[in-house]
Each structure stands twice: as structure tokens, then as C-alpha cells.
Amino acid sequence: MEKIFPLLSKWIWGTKYNFLHKYPNSENILPSDLVQDEKIYLIDAGLSNNCGYPLVLRPERQVQIILSFDFSAGDPFETVHQAAEYCKKNSIPFPDIPAVSEEEKACPSDCYIYRGKNTPTVMHFPLFNRVNCGDSKKIKAMGKTYCTRKTSYSKNEIQALLNKSKHNVQNNHDKIVAEIQKAVEAEWKKNQK
């Protein structure tokens, strides 16, 4: 406890010595911010924005379509909105994500498609939705059954959750295939020029 409380007060959990600090002959090899600072500050993506978007959106990956499965408790659009904000701050191409009403958050559809000019297409799938759960009361009940703080689930609960996820993908199979086909056709046209 003696070691934990000072860390909590300063919040320096992810502070690490930067092994690349003043790395010799690195000016043409490494980005300057990787060698300038003696310490680096790391943060868990789950605390930062709770999604893996930043890792896949590096320009050299040329991502054209993202299948975004939301399994978080609460707002089913939170992670996709946070990803859009992160991308905007860091000049990363990402489609605009419109604001969503409280009613839509409480009872979302099973698939949302976000497009933009020169951005990847994002297909967002809330796990608990009006197609596979029904009304907002049933969606809320599912959220309580599978809350983040619950540490174990019965075999039946796990199977029910897997079935919800499976049916969500099956229900949107044609939309997923259509978006992949659009991405392939766009890439083919681009390469023909």
C-alpha cells in the first residue's frame, strides 16, 4: 500500500524509461518524438477510448472497411464517437459519426453504416439491439445481466450471449458482403487508373 498510494496521487502508472532516448543515428529512422523524451507515458486503450481503431488506422494499412462490434455497457455508440474524436484530433481519416438521441441509445438498431469521403466505411453493430432483443426494457435487462463488474457467467448465459452476437452478424450478412464488395470494387477502380 505504501507504494500504491504515491502512484495513485501522481497517476504515473504508465510512466516508463524510454529505451530509445538519445538513440544514436536515429534521426532518419525513428520519429523525433520517440527519441527526444527520457520517459514515455503509456495508457491502456481501454481507459483511453476503449477501442482498437487507432491501431488499424495507420495510413500504411489503407483500411477501407471496419466492422465495429460494440459490447460495452451503457451507450452503444460511445466507442465509435470516441474513435471519431481521436481521429479528428490526430488528422486520421474517419467518417463523421452523427449525434444519437437518447431513445436511439436505449433501443438501437442492429447495424449502422458510416461513410465519408476518403475514409474507411465503419459498420457499427450494437450487441443488444431492437432486432435481437426487442424493446428498450429487454435491452436494459440484457445489459444488467451482462454487466462489466460481473466476474463469472453460467454456461447458459455465455451461450445466450454468443447466440446474440452470432445472430447479429447473420442478420446483417448481406449488408456486410455488400460493403466488402463496394470496397473491393473501389480498390480495383483505383488500381486501374
Results as ranks from 00 to 15, higher is better:
Lys140Phe: 14
Gln170Thr: 14
Asn168Gly: 07
Asn129Cys: 02
Thr148Met: 15
Arg149Pro: 07
Glu157Met: 04
Thr119Tyr: 00
Leu127Lys: 05
His173Met: 09
Val169Leu: 10
Phe128His: 11
Lys117Trp: 11
Leu162Gly: 12
Ser136Leu: 05
His124Asp: 10
Lys144Cys: 07
Thr145Tyr: 03
Cys147Pro: 01
Phe125Ile: 00
Cys133Arg: 04
Arg149Ala: 08
His167Glu: 15
Lys155Gln: 13
Val122Trp: 01
Thr119Phe: 01
Phe125Trp: 01
His124Thr: 08
Tyr146Glu: 02
Ala160Leu: 13
Ile176His: 00
Lys138Trp: 04
Asn132Pro: 14
Arg130Phe: 07
Thr148Asp: 15
Lys117Leu: 08
Pro126Phe: 00
Ala160His: 11
Arg149Gln: 08
Gln170Ile: 13
Asp174Ile: 04
Val131Glu: 07
Asn118Val: 00
Thr148Ala: 15
Asn168His: 05
Ala160Ile: 06
Asn168Ala: 05
Ile176Arg: 00
Ala160Cys: 12
Asn168Glu: 02
Asn132Cys: 11
Phe125Met: 00
Ser152Cys: 12
Ser136Arg: 10
Val177Phe: 05
Lys144Thr: 12
Asp174Gln: 10
Met142His: 07
Lys117Ile: 03
Lys175Ile: 06
Ile180Asp: 08
Gln170Lys: 13
Ser165Gln: 10
Ser136Ile: 04
Phe125Thr: 00
His124Ala: 04
Pro126Trp: 01
Gly134Lys: 08
Pro120Val: 01
Asn156Thr: 12
Glu157Gln: 10
Thr121Arg: 01
Gly143Met: 02
His173Asp: 06
Ile158Ala: 09
Gln181Val: 11
Tyr153Ala: 13
Thr151Tyr: 04
Val169Ile: 14
Glu179Cys: 09
Thr145Met: 09
Lys150Ser: 03
Val122Pro: 00
Pro126Asp: 01
Gln170Tyr: 07
Ile176Trp: 00
Cys147Glu: 11
Tyr146Val: 04
Asn129Gln: 03
Asn129Ser: 02
Thr119Leu: 01
Thr148Lys: 15
Phe128Pro: 05
Glu179Tyr: 01
Ser165Asp: 08
Ser165Leu: 09
Gln159Ala: 15
Ala183Trp: 04
Lys164Leu: 14
Lys155Ser: 14
Ile158Asp: 06
Lys137Tyr: 10
Ala160Glu: 11
Ile158His: 06
Arg130Lys: 13
Ala178His: 13
Pro120Trp: 00
Tyr146Gly: 02
Cys133Leu: 06
Asn129Ala: 02
Lys140Ala: 15
Glu179Asp: 06
